[in-house]
Every structure is written in C-alpha cells, then in structure tokens.
C-alpha cells in the first residue's frame, strides 16, 4: 500500500519533465476560459455595439467614437424609424412569413415523422438519407431556380412562396427529429387506443401529438430561426419593396444612397434580435427535452 508521502517521489521518478497535476490543471483552465473569453468577445462585442448605437444620437454615431455610451448622447429617437417608411412593412412581413413557416413545418413534420415511425414502406432508410441531402445545397443554389419557377407560377413576391421555400429547407431536420422522437413513444399506447375504439387519426391526435410537445417546440424553434434570419431566399423570392422581409430590407436601408443612418439600422436590428432571444429563453427546457432521445 502506498502512503501519501510516497506520491511526489513517484512523479519525479516517472519523468522529470512531466508537469505536476496542479500546473496541468491550471493550464487547462487557462486555455478553457481564455478561449471562451475570446469567442465571447468576437460574438458579444458586435451585439454590444449594436445595442450601444441603437440608443445613441444618430449624429454622434457617425461623427464620434467611444467605447462606452455617454449619458448626454443617449436617446430613444432612433426607434422612431420603426413607425416610419418601409420598416413596419418589413417587420410585419417577417412575422407573417415566420409564423407561416412554423405552422407548415410543425404540421408536415408531425405527419411525416409519424408515417416514418409507424409505417413500413420500401426504401424508408434511403428516403431518410435522401432527406438529409437537402442540406448539401446552399440557399443561393436553390434560390435561383426557385426564382424562375416561382415567377412562372406566380408565387414571386407572394409570402406563401417564401413560406414554402423556407419550410422545405427546414423540413429535413424537423422530419428527422419528429421521426426519432415518435419512435420513443411505445406503440402499445396507440394500440390501446385503437382497441378502445379510436381511429388511427383520432389516436394520432389524442395520444401521439400531446406526447410530442418537446419535439414540436424544437421543430418550431428551428423553423423560427431559419425563417426569421433568412436573407437569401427573401432577397431572391420577394424582390419588391412592399413584400420583402426584414433582412433584405435592412440592406436596402443601408443602400439608400449617400447618407446611412446607422443609429436607425441598429435600432431595427436590436428589435429583430429580441424575439429569438425570448423564444429560446422561455422554451429552452422544452427544447432540450426535444433533442434528448428518451429511453423506454
């Protein structure tokens, strides 16, 4: 049996260059917190800058530079842009498109995921793999042909057209998640309902759907992020000023020639950042449940 006093001598004999556990521990923590701090700075500083500029007098934003906001230049004036010009239109369009995408994604992924979990059909595995193939294309590659097709069938500048495009790129993930989630619900629960007289549809509605709540939230959140933050599809498929959403819209604010009101742009940006944060914050418990595969 080795006594505690023997331990240091053992480390010495094993290799003189070897660092003690304490030093290694310290170095590890340094690297860990150092890298975390670096990444936080890269990600958080622009957000800080956005918030700071949104609340700063628009003239000051352009003419002066300061790390910290000074009390005399703080103002809410920039937010008046939200009620003026094309901005309200952009915001409403974004909300409509996002809501539409969430509804479509949740509805389709529930039905598709149920079908994949409960029915046997040929090439199911290949079909599932094919779904993931959708991720291999960048939005711009899909967007340009879609532009031609949409303009042909009259979906260009229609929000439903963008909803369809955004839903289809969200679908692979959502269907896959729902499929895996529904697989964890014991089939005997459905069988028990059938025997009690419930039709397959009724059983789906009464027994399966309520139990998929965490997966529904995860899919909704995913669709929300895709739709709310989308730039490429909206830019291509909603070219008109009237119908476009926030992301392409803000680009137009910048490009409005000569004078760029950074204060206004930051105010709009800030407003559009808040909903995703709230969404993620209040649903995080559900979200985590949705991603964990339950054990039987």
């Amino acid at each position: 049996m080795s006594t505690p006093t023997e331990t240091p001598s053992e480390t010495e004999t094993e290799g003189g260059t070897r660092l003690s556990y304490e030093t290694r521990d310290r170095l590890y923590n340094l690297a860990l917190y150092g890298s975390a701090a670096l990444f936080s700075a890269v990600i958080l500083f622009p957000i800080y800058w956005m918030v700071q500029n949104a609340f700063t007098d628009s003239q000051t934003v352009i003419t002066e530079f300061s790390w910290l906001p000074s009390p005399e230049t703080v103002t809410l004036d920039n937010f008046s842009v939200l009620a003026a010009g094309a901005v309200p239109r952009y915001v409403i369009n974004t909300i409509v498109v996002t809501a539409g995408t969430i509804v479509v994604v949740v509805a389709v992924s529930l039905v598709a995921g149920y079908g994949m979990a409960r029915f046997r059909f040929r090439y199911k595995q290949s079909f599932a793999q094919f779904l993931l193939l959708g991720y291999m294309f960048s939005p711009i590659v899909l967007g340009l042909p879609l532009y031609l097709i949409w303009s042909e069938i009259g979906l260009l500048n229609a929000q439903i057209g963008l909803v369809i495009a955004l839903s289809s790129i969200s679908m692979p993930f959502a269907v896959w998640l729902m499929w895996k989630y529904i697989q964890t619900i014991p089939e005997s629960m459905e069988e028990s309902a059938w025997i009690a007289g419930a039709s397959r549809w009724r059983t789906f509605w009464d027994v399966v759907v309520p139990q998929t709540k965490p997966a529904i939230v995860a899919c909704a959140l995913f669709a929300f992020a895709i739709a709310w933050n989308d730039f490429t599809f909206a830019q291509i498929l909603l070219p008109s000023q009237e119908s476009t959403t926030f992301a392409p819209g803000i680009m137009r604010l910048i490009d409005q020639g000569g004078y760029t009101s950074w204060g206004d742009i930051m105010a709009v940006s800030l407003l559009m950042t808040v909903p995703p944060l709230l969404f993620a914050y209040f649903l995080q418990e559900y979200l985590l449940k949705g991603f964990e595969v339950r054990t039987r």
Binding site: P186, E191, W194, G197
Partner: peptide, 20 residues
C-alpha cells in the same frame, strides 16, 4: 376486422397508460 370494431379490452405488458 380492425381492432376498433372488435369490442375487446387488452391489458398490455407495459401497461400503456397515456402519460399526458
């Protein structure tokens, strides 16, 4: 006949109560 039309009751090994 499908199970809905048989008027049987079945007790499952895993009990299968609806958790919600």
């Amino acid at each position: 006949l499908p199970p809905q039309q048989r008027d049987v009751a079945l007790l499952f090994q895993d009990i299968a109560l609806y958790p919600h």
